[in-house]
Design a protein around this nucleic acid. Structure first.
Lengths: 189, 189
DNA sequence: ACTTCATTGCACACCGATGTGCAATGATGC
DNA sequence: GCATCATTGCACATCGGTGTGCAATGAAGT
């Protein structure tokens, strides 16, 4: 069955998200199978991780290009992006957790497209004077969505409270005035 | 000599900062000594890490209590804090890098005082309506100085440009209006 | 010259994680 | 009943990192 395979991937996404050094044994145990079974689906640990990242990157990319096509103002677009990403942000915190570590280099490539889309979005916001320019678009986008994932990973992750907080905080650091940030974040209560 | 010991600590601070999983072998090599020598100074890897963290925490605490005593407005105090911490922020990025990992639990205790001081500072800012309340003080302080270290760790770390960027960004996410943030950050050119 | 002490260069044991091989088990479907 | 296929259980080899023991080296201080 690939039901087992999916369960392994699910559980691995979870474990590696909170501890990037979790071993095949831990993952197997958490998935309710034996270590040997995991190797039956993924020849090596790197294979597992790569598959995981490809999944995560694909979903993020889909959301990003989708939001991108909406063609609204940069700040409203960002808000929509957060709203769409929020439900899975906690799940995909692995995207941040695994950047450093043994496979850091191997993963950098996978994340390239996502980083690029994010940076483009912020850059367009800066060009239309919606976002501030105190930092280059590339770094600002990294920091902004880093903050979003950090909040998603914390205690507030349940409920809409977390989403609101993440939206407002990221908008603030992007240079959106507090009043407008709150107004934008309040649009979907 | 404790000159060797100091060199080991210095180099370990550097290595562990960029790769928390660096081994005793790597550290020894980078310090120009043999692995055995490192064990001569630090009985175990944990000892080394603990010593390192104590050092870092002590310096950070010193800066924080010192700034705390200045008694100025919360936002100005934050600016002074960043200015004082900036020169060593890149060095002490290990404070963030080591929170997760094998000794994560053991280190949490060491970092407690620092986190508390930071949170207090932000809380006072919130109480005096200088900082925003979209997030609890504890989390907001974590995010804010996380961003500072992240910027210090990036390309902009050289020159005053990075310090300005870090100051402005953290002020923005703390809820300080952009105009005031820029004014505050500009005070020491 | 003699002592002291840090450092070195091996040796070794130990541990945990990775990855493989293979026979046994057991459920599913024909 | 029989064949298929995923899963299991266990054995095993390998690798890298940790931590220790001990004799040899060598520089510094007296």
């Amino acid at each position: 069955m690939n039901e087992t395979r999916d369960r392994i991937l699910d559980v691995a996404l979870d474990l590696l998200g909170e501890n990037p050094d979790a071993g095949m044994g831990d993952i197997a145990a958490a998935a309710g199978v034996v270590r040997r079974t995991v190797y039956g689906h993924f020849p090596s640990r790197l294979d597992l991780v790569r598959t995981l990242m490809q999944r995560a990157v694909a979903e993020m990319t889909a959301v990003l290009t989708d939001v991108d096509a909406s063609g609204t103002e940069a700040d409203a677009m960002w808000v929509e992006f957060i709203a769409r990403v929020w439900p899975v942000a906690h799940r995909y915190r692995v995207l941040l957790a695994l950047r450093r570590g043994e496979y850091g280099e191997a993963i950098h490539g996978l994340l390239g497209p996502v980083d690029e889309l994010l940076a483009d979005q912020v850059k367009r916001g800066q060009d239309s004077d919606v976002f501030a320019r105190h930092l280059p678009a590339g770094m600002l986008s990294q920091l902004a969505y880093g903050v979003v994932f950090a909040i998603a990973d914390s205690d507030l992750s349940n409920g809409t409270r977390g989403a609101r907080a993440a939206t407002i905080t990221s908008l603030l650091m992007l240079g959106v005035p507090e009043k407008r940030a709150i107004a934008l974040a309040g649009e979907q209560p």
